[in-house]
């Protein structure tokens, strides 16, 4: 009995979305009832095609929806037992959720150091400088860059964006397509660091990705979204072995491997 009790306590999710509906500009319905759970300490991934509403889901959690005239019109966003739906982003950051936005969005006309200091904007303790050193330990190549952050390479900017998020000491980090525009080798590196941070710092992650292969490799649980709805969810293994997922997101699947299909596919492609 006591064992199951502790287990259910451990399984108490850090973040729960209950059937949320998001409307932009008061007319455009983007999310039509999304529910998901992010358990504490894990990496959960949210997969899906372009325009499915993955980024919108993240913004609904971080409160940035308000900056784009969007609103959660139904459902609730429970974070550590509190409903944070439609709260101001600065309050949500203070509560421990930090979003690394799509396209990195570092502050180009500031130095790496200044970007990192800004990550700790909501903090007032004395450990900010030691935390900057900690970020440099995870991303040694950032330390060598003394110029403006705008001149960093894409991979370095992504690392800086993640490092900046770490500076806020969040409980939950929302990552929006960290692999965007990076070479396969860099994607691997960035995801390995993400996993290391998750393990060593105990930061829970909710990861939105187009690159389902790498996302499922590092996540423990996944959700699949299509046109504003969750259409499938499961553990990593369940999703990786699912035929549909294989075919649509992992680029494999039995049928696709058939010689006939491949040939016609290739022939069509030549004309394009």
């Amino acid at each position: 009995m006591s064992h199951t009790a502790t287990q259910s306590e451990a399984a108490e999710p850090l973040l729960t979305l209950n059937n949320i509906e998001v409307v932009y500009d008061e007319v455009i319905l983007v999310l039509r009832g999304v529910s998901l759970e992010v358990p504490k300490g894990e990496i959960v991934t949210l997969l899906g095609p372009n325009g499915a509403g993955k980024s919108t889901t993240l913004k609904a959690i971080s409160g940035l929806l308000g900056t784009e005239d969007g609103k959660v019109t139904r459902g609730s966003v429970q974070f550590m037992g509190e409903d944070i739906a439609n709260s101001a982003p600065e309050q949500i950051v203070r509560q421990g959720i930090f979003q690394v936005m799509e396209g990195r969005r570092i502050i180009g006309d500031m130095t790496v150091h200044e970007n990192l200091r800004l990550g700790a904007y909501t903090r007032k303790d004395k450990e900010i400088n030691s935390d900057i050193e900690m970020v440099y330990n995870y991303f040694p190549r950032l330390k060598e860059r003394t110029g403006l952050a705008g001149y960093l390479s894409g991979g370095e900017q992504q690392m800086l964006a993640i490092g900046r998020a770490m500076m806020a000491r969040p409980k939950l980090m929302l990552l929006d397509e960290p692999s965007m525009g990076l070479s396969p080798l860099l994607v691997k590196e960035v995801f390995n660091i993400i996993q290391t941070i998750n393990r060593e710092q105990g930061i829970t992650m909710l990861l939105v990705e187009q690159n389902a292969n790498i996302a499922l490799k590092h996540a423990t649980y996944g959700y699949v979204m299509e046109s504003g709805k969750i259409v499938m969810d499961g553990t990593r293994d369940e999703l990786m072995n699912n035929e549909d997922i294989k075919q649509f997101y992992l680029g494999g699947g039995e049928e696709r491997r058939s010689f006939k299909n491949l040939k016609s596919y290739k022939r069509r492609k030549r004309w394009l």
């Binding site: 784009e68 800004l118 904007y121």
Partner: peptide, 13 residues
């Protein structure tokens, strides 16, 4: 000044 949305994501009011 650089980007209002990013500033908000950092917790700046």
């Amino acid at each position: 000044a650089f980007d209002q949305q990013v500033a908000q994501s950092l917790g700046i009011s």
